[in-house]
Amino acid sequence: MTTTEKQSEKTAPRGSRRRFALAALVALALAAAGIFVRSKDFKELAEATKQGAIPTVAVVTPQPGPAVEEIILPGNVQSFFDARIRARVQGFVRDWKYDIGARVKAGDVLATVEAPELDQQLQQAKGEFSREEAELALAKLTSKRWSALRASTAVSQQSADEKSGDYQAKQAAVEAARANVERLRALTSYLQITAPFAGVVTARNVDIGALVGPDSKTELFSVADIHQVRIYVGVPQAFAASIQPAMTAELKLAQFPARLFTAKVLTTSNAIAENSRSLLVQLVADNPEGLLLPGSYAEVHFKLPGRSGVRRIPASGVFFQRNALAAATVGADGKVTIKPITIVRDLGATIEISSGPSLGDRVILNPLQTLNDGDVVRIVPSQAVAKAGAKE
């Protein structure tokens, strides 16, 4: 074996050991780098998990109630006066002169009734009155004669007193007969059915030849005075204190969708109805054109002064917590505070409250039922809130 071969044999193990050491160092470096990366990823994952566990919420700020608020309530339009006319005496309708829609004046004859029996009763009463007058004249003369005879003691005092009493009784009988004649004459005046006031005929339920009388269940005519109309509205109890006499309101009717009519509060019932918890309000409106028809439905628009201390929040910001209605607010530190609320009025999408969140608070929309005081939440950016509001 030559010297060169011996040197090669000695050098080979040394080179292998160096390559092995280098490979080990590379492996250690790769392992250390992997462990570092894995540790970093674990920390990032832990932090992301922690951040993901914090609820993300959208918030709104309570708004003050309006200085003037409008409420719209259903109202019933009625004529200023309304007369349901019936027959005062029994008889047959001879004719009628006015149909529905006709304008009449006070005293106009609407229809005429024939009552033959009443005419006979009047004639009989007149005859009885004449008879009573004749008997009175005779009783008067007899009483004078017996009084003269008593002065000469030709008759007894008892007989004279009897004649005087008979005379007084005949006077009373004459007065009764006269009253009966006047009563029947008064009844004959009802044979003409007249309008009690100026207005319009709104109903005619009679025809020629019909038998009518005091016992008829249906009125003959209905006459309405519509130069002004009354409007009756039930105002909820919450607004009752704001309704004052002489305040104005606007009326909107289905037959005139582009026109508003003005009405004025005349009076109120001064009592809250138990069945509806509302105050009955009577308004009056001038009706010179006759456009406001009795029986119409009207939307009554009241403009009332706003109530102080009232705030408005979305209905989605209210939830049930601690056996009461509440709202959740977010403080500057991102922590939740649960505040009980008192609802003044439910407007549907919006709630009016008198206690709970203040004007500067941030109210959580759609709060989770699991939220509690001190929980940390994250508020979405204002742009996201605006988009959510736009979608709603």
Rank of each mutant, 00 (worst) to 15 (best):
A384H: 07
A263D: 15
L304T: 06
T342A: 11
V310D: 03
K387Y: 12
F92Q: 08
L138R: 15
S222P: 04
Q158S: 15
S355I: 00
K339I: 05
V310P: 00
D166G: 11
E132L: 00
A176E: 08
Y232P: 09
R150H: 07
L347C: 08
V385I: 15
P257G: 09
K339M: 09
R150N: 04
K144L: 14
I351S: 12
I193D: 03
A53W: 00
A254H: 05
L149S: 09
I351H: 07
G309D: 10
R17C: 07
A173P: 03
L138F: 13
E162M: 06
P116G: 02
A58D: 12
D375S: 02
R88E: 13
A177W: 00
F81P: 02
L291N: 10
N205D: 14
H301M: 09
D99V: 04
A210S: 15
A115L: 10
K140H: 11
Q255H: 12
I85Q: 06
I193L: 10
S308R: 06
F129G: 00
A83I: 14
T342Q: 11
T61E: 14
I100D: 09
A23V: 12
K252Q: 13
A240G: 04
R362K: 15
Q51F: 07
I313R: 02
R103G: 12
G34E: 05
R204A: 05
F129P: 00
R183Y: 07
G15C: 01
A125V: 00
Q383M: 13
A177Q: 02
A388K: 13
S164V: 04
L304V: 11
P74M: 07
S216G: 10
V113D: 05
G334Q: 04
S130P: 01
F20S: 08
G306P: 10
G34F: 04
D361S: 05
R307M: 01
V206I: 15
Q321C: 06
P66Q: 06
L371M: 15
A33E: 06
R259W: 04
T370R: 06
Q282S: 09
V223D: 05
D166P: 00
F42D: 10
D82W: 10
G209K: 12
R311T: 02
A102N: 12
A148Y: 07
T337S: 11
D225E: 14
